[in-house]
């Protein structure tokens, strides 16, 4: 009987290990579009993200209305004319940290990561891949990554009159302040 109990405890313990997850609700995404005419930058500091340290699954959810622009009019145009945030309020990314087995969350340090997944925005889903870095420190992980996206891929049409003000490729910089999820 004692042994049974022990097994039961061991089993329950292993379950809790399986769901070793890190999360944030205040991750930051900055996008930057640069053309000779105009540089456009927007900051979002309310990005939610979770990753599973065991399986390597990673997810992001970005509320598009939370992007702040230097010019209020740009922000309005972004929401009203480009990403249509009333119809498509969120962008999500679901993917994998492909080299999760190389990461040791018990040991502080910098670990390069390769992330690949599906980015859904403006009703369109596309494959994306990015190289990043996970800086592990105690129970926190600072995740950073940078990648390029092309608005046209997401069916975001840019009229010819402003074509020279918005870059073909937009740089996305991701900074996530993960902490260990307490169950």
């Amino acid at each position: 009987m004692k042994k049974t109990l022990l097994f039961a405890i061991a089993a329950l313990l292993s379950i809790s290990v399986f769901s070793q997850r890190y999360f944030t609700r205040s991750g930051e995404i900055v996008f930057y579009s640069s053309t000779p005419v105009e540089d456009i930058e927007a900051i979002n500091k309310t990005v939610a993200s979770v990753f599973d340290a065991k399986s390597g699954k990673i997810e992001f959810a970005v509320t598009l209305k939370s992007f702040v622009f230097e010019k209020a009019l740009m922000q309005e145009h972004f929401n009203e004319n480009y990403v249509e945030s009333d119809t498509y309020p969120k962008a999500t990314l679901k993917g994998d940290i492909q080299n999760i087995s190389e990461l040791n969350f018990a040991k502080d340090g910098n670990y390069p990561v390769k992330i690949a997944g599906k980015l859904t925005m403006h009703g369109v889903t596309k494959d994306v891949a990015a190289d990043g870095n996970f800086a592990v420190k105690g129970n926190t992980v600072l995740g950073t990554a940078k990648f390029m996206i092309n608005p046209e891929d997401y069916n975001i049409k840019i009229p010819s009159v402003v074509r020279n003000k918005i870059a073909e490729e937009i740089e996305v910089t991701v900074t996530m302040n993960y902490e260990l999820m307490k169950k």
């Binding site: 097994f7 039961a8 379950i15 399986s55």
Partner: peptide
């Protein structure tokens, strides 16, 4: 023992399939 391993396995699977963000 078998019972517990199976139990554990199913829990693992269902957690995987679940949308992790919805937990957040």
């Amino acid at each position: 023992f078998l019972f517990f391993s199976v139990f554990q396995f199913t829990v693992h699977i269902s957690a995987q399939e679940m949308d992790m963000l919805s937990e957040l």
